[in-house]
Design a protein around this nucleic acid. Structure first.
Lengths: 189, 189
DNA sequence: GTATGTTTCCTAGGAGCATTAGGCAAACAC
DNA sequence: GTGTTTGCCTAATGCTCCTAGGAAACATAC
């Protein structure tokens, strides 16, 4: 019988595609195996288990997100950089809803600290340099920005904004203006 | 054989307790049946299926959240009301992590619009009246506040803030100050 | 108090999921 | 061409949800 040519990367890629099609929570060993025309058991030569496969998808998503964010930030500062950075998150979530959900997958703390999650936090810090906040205020601002981006996108995807006619893009733009205002008039301790 | 005295409310309550103990995603028909010492099949006389049971837990969580928010808002305004409202969300999430996760459960649009999800949005509107924003800015602010509260709490629970020594409560307080600043200096269209 | 009807819970069974153990054959190294 | 490694298989276990149909407990009518 000809071999299917499986390996961890191909499985991760297939799982990532599947996540965007049917949702990250519906990524299963069975579904991925089906996609390659092999039995479930075959996957266990390449990934440890379902948890491991999902963690690989999560890492992939975080890396992609950080790459895009880094590219978007190049040559921009202030409100301009804020808008570009924010767009990366929101556009990524709309383009790849399954991968975005994967990025929220709980990784073990060391992995998260070492990997792309840290890169994302550092990019947010870089974005904030134009506002010249002293520590610990910069850290507070990093957390605020992360909260707004993640919160807005999550609620939008969950349909929480759909019961009102107000344009969602317009609210988003306004939220960025408000954030810019808050950062420029940052309350002192 | 003596009957166990099951009904939809008792099942929902047990499922809610279970959610806080093992996580909302681990709420299963089997686990709830086990808790009552009955077989899985017995539950189907009272709830349609697992989806239905989880939706009931979600509705319960949203109602509880709205009740607490309404109580917290009574007799307060401005930054004071903002802090009280925000505390309700964050404290609820810490006290009942499973229920908080349940509140994010995707309900069908009509149910969400009619029920407690709408009440929560209206309470946010009430909170904002002290800042006297014209429409559509008030709607934009409602969305921004919801994003910050939900985003911050989600990221905190996910451990996203744990790789830095900065006190998480202090950052939270600062975020509320920043929000208050943004609302008082709301960017005009 | 007995008969009738309804509700509650049961047994039994099908189908999908993750995972492990052990086997055979294809691909590779020499 | 032989031997070893690796990739994929069959088979099995145990968990999940859910349905069909039956029996026991309860409620009501007479």
């Amino acid at each position: 019988m000809a071999r299917a040519g499986l390996n961890a990367e191909r499985l991760t890629q297939a799982a990532a595609d599947l996540a965007d099609e049917v949702g990250f929570e519906n990524v299963t060993i069975s579904a991925v195996a089906r996609r390659f025309g092999v039995t479930n058991a075959s996957l266990y030569s390449h990934v440890k288990n379902l948890q491991d496969l999902k963690a690989r998808v999560a890492a992939h998503a975080l890396a992609e997100l950080a790459d895009r964010a880094a590219a978007a930030l190049a040559g921009r500062a202030g409100r301009d950089a804020l808008a570009a950075f924010a767009s990366v998150y929101r556009d990524f979530a709309k383009e790849h809803p399954g991968l975005y959900a994967a990025a929220q997958f709980r990784l073990d703390p060391e992995t998260a600290a070492a990997g792309a999650a840290r890169r994302n936090a550092e990019l947010t810090r870089a974005l904030l340099h134009a506002y010249t906040l002293p520590e610990p205020d910069e850290t507070d601002a990093v957390r605020l920005l992360g909260s707004v981006f993640h919160g807005y996108v999550s609620l939008e995807i969950a349909g929480a904004f759909s019961n009102h006619p107000r344009d969602i893009d317009a609210s988003w733009s306004k939220a960025l203006d408000a954030l810019d205002t808050a950062l420029r008039n940052w309350p002192s301790s």
